[in-house]
Design a protein around this nucleic acid. Structure first.
Lengths: 215, 215
DNA sequence: ACCGGCGCGGGACATTTGTCCTGCCACCAG
DNA sequence: CTGGTGGCAGGACAAATGTCCCGCGCCGGT
């Protein structure tokens, strides 16, 4: 759900010690953009604290959220590897702080630093795996199942998402989201007054399991 | 649409010259499985000729096709990097021939062979990019648009897909696919008698553009 | 105090998609 | 020849989802 990457932070630590001049710090306020779709990447950002969303804006104006970034997550690396403009936007959901690394330095490190290369390779593999799995089940299972899954995952972490973000993550309209939430409220699976307060994680886990069995 | 990776074949050539004992050959007949979801990977296969599909089978029995593999495409590398069982199945669509490499050898090469590591990293990046883009537009745009796009792309290559495969790629039922095809036939966008013979590529390109404009 | 904007909630209706089922036809094995 | 299987086509109905719209309440600025 929210991805994090602690190992990358240790590499940043190394850089801070040995190449402090290469590591910038940059804060963003909630709502601010860090990365703009289609633009060339000039800096790689690594999340130090806070929460961001990574999303693609389609030509009809709708957004699709690919992932949420937490501590240690990196953005821009994919684009430096493919050499293209940015695949997606990244926007701060909460206020956040980041480490900032020049593209040229990062690219050079990627070529020379075995540990970093290994880490980024694993990172890409994990993202690909998770993106593929989500593309599959999100399209194949009914909305209600995906929503429950999302609520379950987001209840594990603090995470207070707006309806807009939930809808964009699930690739549905807000109206459909409201319908599904109402249905869950009627069945006492989620709290009547706040849509992301789940009545009990145990109950939710059970509902998910029943789904798995039925399907 | 169908991915290929010519560069990887040159690395295979190198291996064939210098480490011929490490490179096996294996043929598969149409329909045969090369890779089984959730199973541990023991060999990496690289496509030499033919066409294969890579797909996830969900617990309800429905398949989602992630990509089609053509010449030079590799399978199993992601799993060797993450160390998990296979993300997906791979099945031969046509008869095909492959190069086969032991997992241990491939992993060792990945650690020691800079050129290979670079290539695999690019490969992962491209797959991630394309998977993410498809997840986004396939969920956000209407079926008809996605179908047209698929027909357009598949007309660029030879590629004669079964209805089952088209439906699994678009994550829809065959019934919905039939409806959409009928609609396109009525509008003289595709050939009345064979569903993947497009009347004219120019016309199709134009329809797609109109879509883009409307949206 | 008041207005405007914005997020939430949901009614009404149209459209899209899935499910179930039936028929047709080609092909293959017995 | 014949029965079985599998792919193609589509009718009928149900369920899911989108679009458009209105109303409510909160909050910040003037």
């Amino acid at each position: 759900m929210i991805r994090t990457n602690p190992k990358l932070l240790t590499i940043i630590d190394n850089w801070l010690q040995n190449r402090p001049e290469e590591i910038g710090h940059r804060s963003f306020t909630a709502g601010e953009r860090l990365v703009f779709q289609d633009e060339q990447i000039r800096f790689v950002y690594i999340m130090q604290s806070g929460l961001a969303k990574c999303f693609i804006t389609e030509e009809n104006g709708r957004d699709y959220i690919l992932e949420f970034f937490g501590e240690g997550e990196i953005m821009g690396e994919l684009e430096l590897i493919t050499g293209k403009g940015s695949l997606s936007n990244v926007a701060a959901i909460t206020d956040l702080t980041t480490f900032r690394v020049r593209a040229a330095f990062f690219t050079a490190e990627l070529a020379g630093n075995r540990e970093l290369a290994q880490l980024i390779m694993e990172q890409l593999a994990i993202r690909l795996e998770q993106t593929a799995m989500r593309a599959s089940y999100q399209q194949i299972y009914p909305l209600e199942y995906n929503l429950l899954k999302l609520l379950y995952l987001s209840s594990e972490q603090e995470l207070q998402l707006s309806k807009r973000d939930i809808a964009d993550y699930l690739a549905i309209s807000i109206r459909s989201l409201n319908r599904a939430l109402k249905e869950l409220r009627n069945r006492n699976i989620i709290n009547p007054d706040s849509y992301n307060a789940i009545i009990s994680r145990e109950q939710l886990a059970q509902v998910l399991q029943e789904f798995d069995r039925l399907i």
